[in-house]
Design a protein around this nucleic acid. Structure first.
Lengths: 157, 157
DNA sequence: ACAGATACTGCAACTCAGTCTCAATTATCG
DNA sequence: CGATAATTGAGACTGAGTTGCAGTATCTGT
């Protein structure tokens, strides 16, 4: 099913409306080819010649997430980032504490073990976040091997 | 090495001072037997007859984290929770979206796979967060099987 | 033990992401 | 075509966390 149709379907099932703003947001979000924050998105929209208030972005993004078209990443300090999920399958992220780069990874095996843990604990999983912090190839080299000490536990990102 | 001594060591290596406030915070944090937020901690301290300003809590907790005595959990919407880590080994968390309960789990196998992924991506890991969202045994039952639809993606916690 | 250097504390003002209220607007259903 | 209910933008607001400042406490060297 086409993304726009899928969103339209989601909206109508919830008795919500397909407004100009939602259409434009959807369009630009799907065109984005990376991870973006709310302010980034507003900038993208502005460049595309549209104005949408921050309030509307904050109101629309959860719908895109809930309809499965977009995925939300919770970064440190409550900074949320989003990424389009159309035609992609689930993956998790590594975040470089030096340059902020986000590297995607996926592991069927980890997912499988995760399911097993949930079954064992009688926990009904609806979603998960698996984020690895550290330094990417380039940054680890520049900092020198084994530098840094203990994990600053996402004081940055 | 005893926790207090370890913290003292950490402080002196960083040319920081062991103040009354830090001593009291350390003491109460180590005595806590669960996950707590900053306000919880202030309440705990108050009940123990100590007054420490929120600012000092916010200034001290990162030191406890960096010295490895305490672990920080990043929950949704930037709400941080902490847990003492003395004499415990690493574990991850399941968070019930209904009642807020935090269930701990650990899996050597997942950790191993995680290391492997990092090696493959040439990523130098300093830490990670693996959080599973969903409904605990009790709450899943009360909500009825298969209720809820897609992951609300940590709009709650 | 003392003094000087330096870090720490509490307070209150501030930041920043995100939420909410409200009046005006607009999509949708019959 | 209306009526009805959802949506929008603006700006006020919230809540977690941070920061500048003036006074205070710890630590270091002697």
């Amino acid at each position: 099913m086409h993304a726009a149709a899928r969103f339209a379907d989601y909206l109508s099932r919830k008795r919500l409306k397909m407004t100009r703003e939602r259409r434009v947001i959807l369009e630009q979000v799907l065109a984005a080819r990376g991870h973006f924050g709310v302010d980034d998105l507003q900038e993208i929209l502005r460049k595309a010649g549209h104005t949408v208030s921050r309030a509307s972005l904050y109101r629309t993004l959860p719908h895109l997430v809930e309809s499965g078209l977009v995925h939300k990443l919770e970064m440190a300090k409550g900074q949320a980032r989003y990424e389009p999920m159309v035609g992609r399958h689930h993956h998790d992220h590594m975040v470089c504490l030096e340059c902020g780069k986000i590297i995607e990874f996926e592991s069927r095996e980890i997912e499988r073990l995760q399911d097993r843990v949930c079954r064992r604990k009688r926990f009904s999983m609806t979603g998960h976040t698996h984020q690895i912090r550290g330094y990417c190839d380039g940054c680890a080299g520049r900092r020198g091997p084994r530098a840094g000490g203990p994990d600053p536990q996402a004081h940055r990102v």
